[in-house]
Measured scan of single mutants.
Amino acid sequence: GLTEEQKQEIREAFDLFDTDGSGTIDAKELKVAMRALGFEPKKEEIKKMISEIDKDGSGTIDFEEFLTMMTA
């Protein structure tokens, strides 16, 4: 499992990506986040990433899903 410290770091990354503070990361926010990390993702790639992570089919990534992605 994760230490509380690791969870906190992932939470901070999540909050950075969640620019509108909605508690979820949408495609637009993910794209901005990827760019910040030096990637140039295409729209299809973003969609694919979200569909792989987005277990509940909401079209957005919540913290639990993000946590799973970061620790996979």
Rank of each mutant, 00 (worst) to 15 (best):
R35Y: 04
L30D: 00
R35W: 04
T24L: 06
Q8M: 11
D56R: 11
K28H: 12
K42G: 14
M70D: 00
S22P: 01
E9R: 15
I10M: 13
F66V: 03
I10R: 02
T19E: 07
T24I: 05
G38M: 01
K48L: 06
E44G: 14
K47S: 13
I10G: 01
Q6E: 08
L2T: 05
A36N: 09
S58H: 06
S51H: 12
L37I: 06
E64Q: 10
K31W: 15
K28P: 04
I53E: 03
G38S: 02
M70T: 02
D54P: 04
L67V: 07
A13I: 15
E45R: 08
K47C: 14
M69H: 06
E45C: 15
K28I: 08
I61D: 00
T68V: 07
E9V: 14
Q8W: 07
E12W: 15
K47I: 14
T71D: 05
A33S: 01
A72Y: 07
I53L: 13
P41M: 15
G38V: 01
L37T: 04
Q6W: 13
R11L: 03
V32K: 15
S22W: 03
L67R: 01
K7A: 10
F39H: 09
D15C: 08
E40D: 15
L2C: 11
F39L: 10
T3S: 13
V32I: 09
T3L: 04
R11G: 01
E64G: 06
L37S: 03
G38C: 10
F14D: 00
K48Q: 10
R11W: 05
G1E: 12
E44P: 08
D15F: 08
E45D: 13
L67K: 02
R35V: 11
A27N: 04
G23H: 04
G23C: 06
I61Y: 03
S51K: 09
A33M: 14
A13E: 03
S51G: 07
D18Q: 03
S22A: 04
M49V: 07
G23F: 02
S51Q: 12
D18R: 04
M70Q: 01
K7I: 14
D54N: 10
K55S: 09
I50R: 01
E65W: 11
T60G: 06
E52W: 15
G38Y: 01
E44R: 05
K7M: 11
E5L: 09
G21L: 05
K48G: 05
E65S: 11
F63R: 01
L30Q: 00
I50Q: 03
S51V: 05
F17M: 10
T71Y: 06
I53H: 13
I46N: 02
E29R: 10
I25M: 05
L67A: 02
T19N: 06
E64K: 07
I53S: 06
E4V: 09
F63H: 00
A72I: 11
D26V: 02
P41R: 03
L30H: 00
L37P: 02
E65K: 11
E5K: 13
E44V: 07
K47H: 10
E65A: 13
M49Q: 02
E4A: 09
L2W: 12
A13M: 14
M49T: 03
T71S: 09
E4G: 06
G1D: 08
G21V: 02
G21Y: 04
F39W: 14
G21W: 03
F17Q: 03
E4Q: 10
I46F: 09
E40T: 11
K42E: 15
L67M: 07
T60D: 11
T19H: 13
L30M: 06
R35E: 15
L67H: 01
L37W: 02
K43S: 14
D18P: 01
E12M: 14
F17V: 15
T19K: 10
T24W: 09
F17D: 01
D20A: 03
S22R: 06
I50T: 03
K55G: 08
T71A: 14
G21S: 07
F14I: 01
F66P: 00
Q8S: 07
E29H: 13
E64V: 05
L37R: 03
L37Q: 03
E29S: 10
A36L: 13
T24H: 08
D56L: 11
L2P: 05
E4K: 11
M49Y: 03
L37N: 03
I46D: 04
E44M: 08
G57L: 09
M70S: 01
M34T: 01
K42W: 09
E44C: 13
D56Q: 07
D15E: 08
V32W: 13
E4L: 08
I50H: 02
F17I: 14
E5M: 11
T3M: 05
K55R: 08
T19M: 11
D54Q: 06
S51I: 05
E44Y: 02
M34F: 05
L2S: 04
L16S: 09
F14L: 01
E5A: 13
E29Y: 12
E12K: 14
L37A: 08
L37G: 04
L30N: 00
L67G: 00
E12Y: 10
E45K: 06
R35T: 09
I25T: 00
A13D: 02
T71W: 07
F63Y: 05
F14K: 00
M70V: 14
Q6I: 08
D20E: 04
V32C: 15
T3V: 02
D56I: 07
D26P: 11
G38Q: 02
V32H: 15
S51P: 03
M69I: 13
K43R: 05
G57W: 09
Q8E: 05
T19Q: 08
K47W: 04
K42L: 13
T24F: 13
K43T: 15
D15M: 11
M49N: 03
K28C: 13
E12N: 12
F14Y: 01
E29Q: 13
F17Y: 10
E64W: 12
E5I: 12
M34K: 00
D15R: 08
L30T: 01
I50V: 06
T68Y: 10
F39I: 10
R35I: 14
S22D: 10
G59A: 06
I50D: 03
G57V: 05
G1W: 12
R11F: 04
K28W: 11
T24Q: 08
F39R: 05
D54K: 12
G59E: 05
I10C: 11
